[in-house]
Every structure is written in structure tokens, then in C-alpha cells.
């Protein structure tokens, strides 16, 4: 188990908050809410992948430069699944 916090530059305001995903092997939960700075707290069951997390999240914020506070509770999801959940969470903040 590992925890770390990553910061990104984002300034597009978020319309609301969202909670997507499940606690299940190979999956993750994402909580996304408006904030004045972009901070991602990652809690993951798999150690040693901070670099991969940073790259996956950087790709997301390059496409969607939102100002958001994001909490991630990961149970060994692949970067592909992480990207899908982030996109799903962002979509749900607009609902």
C-alpha cells in the first residue's frame, strides 16, 4: 500500500462533484470536486508506480486542465482503466 499527492496546473472550473468507480481488483474509485488548485491524492494497493501515475494524470490534465481536488483509491487498475475512470468522473461532474 502506498500513498502520495501529485499537483498539476489546472484552472478550468468544475461544475460539480462526482464519485465513480468501485473497490474491486483491477479497478479504482475516483472522487472529483471543485477546488482552487489541482491536487490528486493517490492511495494504491500496488507499490512503486508513482511515475506511471504521474504520466497518466498528466495526460488527463493536458486534455482537461480543470481545477479539481481528486481522491483516488486504487486496487491495481491499469493506466487504461484509470484514464476511463477519470473521464467518467469528469463527465459526471457536469450531470
Amino acid at each position: 500500500m502506498e500513498r502520495f499527492e501529485l499537483r498539476f496546473s489546472g484552472n478550468a472550473p468544475l461544475a460539480g462533484r462526482a464519485h465513480v468507480g468501485v473497490v474491486a481488483s483491477g479497478d479504482l474509485e475516483v472522487l472529483m470536486e471543485p477546488s482552487n488548485e489541482t491536487v490528486v491524492s493517490v492511495r494504491t494497493s500496488v507499490d512503486g508506480f508513482e511515475k506511471v501515475w504521474r504520466a497518466t494524470l498528466a495526460r488527463f490534465f493536458a486534455r482537461h486542465p480543470v481545477a479539481a481536488r481528486i481522491e483516488i483509491n486504487d486496487s491495481g487498475a491499469t493506466p487504461g482503466v484509470v484514464s476511463l475512470r477519470l473521464a467518467q468522473a469528469l463527465e459526471r461532474t457536469k450531470a
Binding site: 465513480v20 468501485v22 467518467q88 459526471r92
Partner: peptide, 9 residues
């Protein structure tokens, strides 16, 4: 995942 199938998303 079953929990997601049963959820409201």
C-alpha cells in the same frame, strides 16, 4: 463489477 452494476451510474 457487481457493485457497479447495482449502482446508479
Amino acid at each position: 463489477a457487481l457493485d457497479e452494476l447495482l449502482g446508479d451510474s
